[in-house]
Amino acid sequence: MIGRSRATPSGRSPEVVLTELLRDQQARFAELDTGLPPAVLPPPGDVVVVGDGPGGEAAGVVTQHSWPAGSAPLLWSAAEVTELHPVLGHSGRRGADRLLAEWPGRVPARVRAAADSAAVVTWPSRDVAAARAFLDHGLVPLAVLAVRRPGPLAGVLDRDPGLEVRPAGEDDLEGCVELAMHEIAYSSMVGGSVLRPDAEAVKRTALRERWARGEPIFLAERDGRLVGLLECGLTEATPGSWLAGLLPTGRWGYVNCASVLPGHRGRGVGHALVAAALPALQPPGVRGTYLYYNPPNPVSSVFWPRHGYRPLWTLWEVRPAAALR
């Protein structure tokens, strides 16, 4: 059972409509982008079905969740989130538009009333027909999930002899926190990050946990000063996991945080960090690497494509959720 639902115009149950449209959506995704995994059923929630007849129906599931104070997602997310999981089949822009028009009526009053709230939908980046509908309803492309195939970096930059890149140790904790805070502050101006009062403490805890898991962290140092940070990891997209709905099944490397100090950007620090990290992120059998960046960010939106990353999914968002139209 997907979750709470209402009667459909065709008289078929919403769950039946979702299942039927999912087959069409899987075919549509395969046409859009061969890098996408097969489309999966949305998580449990409030089922919405709009339109009728072959090619005219669209469906989706609306979910709500809250992030508690002090949790790491609050560094990049609103506290109250309503999320739409569309199953458009082949209905395209028209189906997306109808579904989005129904969405505000399914958002709980507590979410609509919250200033720290967001409406979010994640959709394949290459589906420009749906993108037009998202824009028309007030959503903006605030982040993308970008992927890179395994392989060496294209091109070689002249290495700055004064720049050293090395793995970070636990005695580098405070330096890593300082660099991470620069990234959060910058991203809060051009993306979804939020510079919250407890951000430094939350980031310090997250870094300690990353070391405990044995995940790689790299630092760039120039003239004895830390100037760059790259937090990385390895994970599995397994059937049934949240990641399997976004990436093909298998092992993936990922970049969690990249930060270069102001005044040192554009001088090869980021390139040197990525070059050092890629061997650790590409063990034998890995499917590739992925990361999130903000399209409005004038630095990362240029840097990551130059290093072989291309958008796979776009996260469309509007804050507060009441601004959804």
Rank of each mutant, 00 (worst) to 15 (best):
I2D: 09
R4I: 14
R12A: 15
R12G: 09
P14R: 12
T19D: 14
R23A: 15
D24K: 04
F29V: 05
A30L: 13
L32D: 08
T34D: 15
L41M: 15
P42Y: 09
P43G: 13
A58Y: 07
V62Y: 06
T63D: 09
H65F: 15
H65S: 14
W67C: 07
A69D: 13
A72V: 14
L75N: 02
W76C: 07
S77P: 02
A78Q: 03
A78K: 02
V81D: 01
V87K: 00
L88T: 04
G95L: 06
L99P: 02
E102W: 06
E102D: 14
W103H: 07
P104T: 07
P104N: 08
G105L: 03
A109E: 15
A114R: 00
A114S: 04
A114C: 02
D116F: 05
V121S: 09
S125N: 08
A129Y: 03
A131G: 13
H137E: 02
V140S: 13
A143E: 14
L145M: 12
A146P: 08
R148L: 05
G155N: 06
P167M: 09
E170H: 06
D171R: 14
D172Y: 09
G175N: 07
V177W: 03
H182S: 12
H182Y: 12
E183P: 00
Y186Q: 04
S187N: 11
V190D: 00
G191C: 02
G192F: 00
S193M: 09
V194S: 10
L195Q: 10
P197L: 07
D198Y: 07
A199S: 15
T205L: 09
A206Y: 01
E209V: 00
E209I: 00
W211H: 08
G214I: 08
I217E: 06
L219M: 11
G224A: 06
R225W: 10
R225F: 10
T235F: 04
T235C: 05
A237T: 04
A237N: 06
G240L: 12
T249D: 12
A258P: 01
P262M: 06
P262G: 04
H264F: 12
G268D: 02
V274F: 01
V274Y: 01
V274R: 00
P284E: 07
G288W: 02
T289G: 05
T289K: 00
Y290I: 01
P296K: 04
V302N: 01
W304D: 02
T314R: 01
W316D: 01
E317N: 05
V318F: 03
V318P: 01
R319C: 10
P320I: 06
A323I: 10
A323G: 10
R325D: 12
